[in-house]
Design a protein around this nucleic acid. Structure first.
Lengths: 113, 113
DNA sequence: AAACGTAGTATCGAAAAATATACCTTAAGC
DNA sequence: GCTTAAGGTATATTTTTCGATACTACGTTT
């Protein structure tokens, strides 16, 4: 009854069209400013980028540093707490890679979705 | 560029209002027939239950055993392959539990969502 | 004084996904 | 001819997500 009840919490902060991409960018890139992120993610709108970053910030995964300059500069990075999430991401990734292979074994080369 | 690219695969088979609950039931309970599952999950409709079970079956997480009887009997269980997913679920759960505590540290006792 | 650049916000609405509702089937047993 | 178990199907509704557009603020540059 009480095992695995909260794994949805981990899901919550990862789902969505953009959160994974944003996370990947910041993990591989270190600190990035808003416009860099936007340029590096094709088709994302400011609104989506802002929205997703705020959610990640709320969860203490992403740090937002505002520089009081004109024109404004805002830099984003993964927090220390966020870094501690990488083993989980790695585990999920490993499982995913393996699962894709598993599906191909089961269903052959047809597109596996 | 190529690290953590597939962790969305793991997400995919877990998201949804019902998949986690169904998984939990089957993990804790072993084999269950359709009607047992339905009774044990308040408010789920047949259609939703069927739909989710089929998806889990496609991913080889859940096994579906049909007994050719009248009235029909169909039993569901976690496959061996599905069992091998439990460490990941456990890891996600642990992270989730910890994260909830982390949020409460940050934001206090107000409802944390 | 008008335009520029950055990092947004605000609002509306379309599109997509998730979920619900209602009704149909099958074949044995009472 | 009604019930039962495990669905199927078709339609409807709700919810969530995503996108398009316009607008703001502020100092600097032209």
């Amino acid at each position: 009854m009480n095992t695995y009840c909260k794994f949805e919490t981990a899901l919550d902060i990862l789902i969505g069209k953009w959160k994974p991409v944003i996370l990947l960018r910041l993990l591989n890139h270190g600190t990035m400013r808003f416009s860099e992120l936007q340029k590096s993610i094709p088709d994302i709108t400011k609104k989506m980028l802002t929205q997703q970053l705020r959610e990640l910030e709320y969860h203490d995964i992403v740090h937002r540093e505002v520089y009081k300059e004109i024109p404004p500069r805002v830099e984003y990075s993964i927090t220390d707490y966020g870094q501690r999430m990488t083993p989980l991401l790695q585990a999920m990734n490993d499982w995913g890679v393996n699962h894709i292979a598993h599906l191909q074994e089961l269903y052959g080369e047809e597109q596996v979705e």
